[in-house]
């Protein structure tokens, strides 16, 4: 139990910026810049950040949906970064993804049954009968009914479509699922249902989640450990309690204080960050957060803070943490 399933070392992803008629590369967007983390079996790692933080890119990178620039991704002790497609293909069934938008991620011309059975068709040699049985099992798992298999995605509500997406991801009994903002497009009452479903599935099937979200309340509810990102760089990384109860990085503190709490009498210190999130094309020098940090000093403008372990398993990238 609790073995490390996924390890990411110093992951870097640069997207080239092409300009001009001949598409010359003029520079790079450092979408992900030196991110490391590890994820244990049956646990959830929350990736938190605002736009341009690189959280979605990280999700794509660990599934090798896009090529990385540098770094290492180790899944079940095997380095998958150097693998080519045919070597990686058999591992794909252990690694799945759930998308934010349940509307566009399902093929409208396939029945729900076909959508869920598709990974079985590609990765297993089950017979038609076995696949059908498996589809019914999966539908039941996500609390849909067997007769739903014959219908098309447009006949379902947003929450039900997300359940279909989850059933498809579960088809091959994966060990690891990237959940990219899985509930943010849903209505509030449906969000709770999907959150509960994901937690139940994790308990029953010992799945590890890379849970990507901008809503910190949900991450606090779901994630065993949390990685806070800003402009592609890790700001703070630690266990749920480290980050939510004892946040050490000014950005984490500001993020937490910005979360609206549904209690009119909830009192806390409000840190309202000034300014905008800088463009990742031209990130600030030194600490990337210094332009908005209420405590920034001259040192922050020139020196890049390294991610340091400030307590066991609690890492912070700030000169003054």
């Amino acid at each position: 139990m609790n073995d490390v399933l996924l390890e990411v070392h110093d992951l870097v992803k640069w997207f080239p910026i092409k300009r001009g008629v001949f598409g010359r590369v003029q520079g790079h967007v450092k979408a992900v810049d030196g991110v490391s983390f590890s994820l244990r079996q049956g646990e959830t790692l929350g990736l938190v950040g605002e736009s341009g933080s690189g959280k979605t890119t990280i999700g794509r990178l660990v599934l090798k949906l896009i090529p990385h620039t540098r770094g290492r991704i180790v899944f079940e002790g095997v380095d998958i970064t150097s693998m080519n497609y045919s070597q990686f293909r058999p591992m794909k069934k252990d690694m799945q993804i759930i998308f934010q938008d349940p509307y566009s991620s399902l093929n409208p011309r396939m029945t729900v049954g076909e959508i869920i059975a598709e990974p079985l068709l590609v990765h297993t040699n089950m017979t038609q009968k076995e696949r059908e049985k498996r589809v019914y099992e999966l539908l039941e798992k996500v609390t849909l009914r067997p007769e739903h298999a014959r219908r098309y995605p447009h006949e379902f509500s947003g929450g039900q479509r997300q359940r279909i997406g989850i059933a498809r991801a579960l088809a091959l009994n994966p060990k690891f699922i990237v959940a990219d903002e899985p509930i943010s497009a849903l209505d509030v009452s449906i969000q709770a249902q999907i959150t509960n479903l994901l937690i139940d599935l994790q308990r029953d099937m010992n799945i590890s989640f890379l849970f990507i979200a901008h809503d910190l309340s949900v991450v606090k509810h779901m994630a065993d450990s949390v990685l806070v990102l800003y402009l592609g760089k890790p700001m703070e990384y630690g266990k749920n309690e480290d980050v939510f109860v004892h946040p050490r990085h000014p950005y984490t503190q500001a993020l937490l204080s910005a979360v609206p709490v549904p209690d009119p009498d909830y009192k806390r210190e409000r840190i309202i960050l000034q300014g905008e999130i800088p463009s990742p094309i031209d990130p600030p020098k030194g600490c990337v957060f210094h332009t908005r940090c209420p405590y920034a000093t001259d040192k922050c403008k020139t020196e890049i803070p390294q991610l340091r372990e400030v307590a066991t398993g609690h890492f912070v990238a700030c000169h003054y943490a």
């Binding site: 709770a192 309340s217 709490v261």
Partner: peptide, 26 residues
């Protein structure tokens, strides 16, 4: 009541506790 119990809270609630929420669809 259901709506209020549907949202995880920053100020309270334990890790992976089920959210009572509201059953069914809109």
């Amino acid at each position: 009541q259901g709506l209020l119990q549907s949202v995880p809270r920053l100020d309270r609630g334990g890790l992976k506790e089920p959210l009572p929420g509201i059953s069914g669809n809109l």
